[in-house]
């Protein structure tokens, strides 16, 4: 039989909650740090936006390069023979949204010719 291990003093085990609360506090600190980090990154990257702005103003660009897989996706705001927003930039012909919510009236021009084809 193995003798019971000798314990010189009543051990005072560090409560498990110490670790858990420690981790939790660290997470809160990390959470707070993301806001500091966000502010830092914003300050760092905000000037970069100027490059896009300058190019946009110079070339008269109308759409960000979000989708390039097909021509009709590249400039959704520009009505084209094959464009998504064929009738109007505010009309979603695609998806339930467009049928549920038509473009607001104030967004239409007075002239019917400009409103829709």
């Amino acid at each position: 039989m193995r003798p019971a291990p000798f314990r010189p003093l009543p051990s005072r085990p560090r409560p498990a909650s110490t670790y858990v609360l420690g981790v939790f506090a660290a997470l809160i600190a990390a959470f707070a740090a993301t806001f500091v980090d966000a502010a830092r990154l914003r300050a760092e990257r905000a000037p970069h936006t100027q490059a896009s702005i300058a190019l946009t103003a110079r070339l008269g660009l109308t759409d960000p390069v979000l989708m390039t897989e097909a021509r009709y996706l590249r400039h959704p705001s520009q009505a084209d023979l094959h464009a998504h927003f064929q009738d109007h930039p505010l009309a979603f012909d695609l998806f339930p949204g467009g049928s549920l919510l038509p473009p607001p009236r104030h967004a239409h021009l007075a002239q019917p010719s400009a409103t829709a084809d």
Binding site: A4, R7, P10, S11, R12, P15, S17
Partner: peptide
């Protein structure tokens, strides 16, 4: 405090010859 309780529990366990099984 946890430490106080822990020591008291340990003392009781010792009294009942259970100190080696405390954990």
């Amino acid at each position: 405090p946890h430490a106080v309780l822990s020591a008291r529990a340990q003392a009781l366990l010792e009294r009942f010859r259970l100190a080696h099984r405390a954990d």
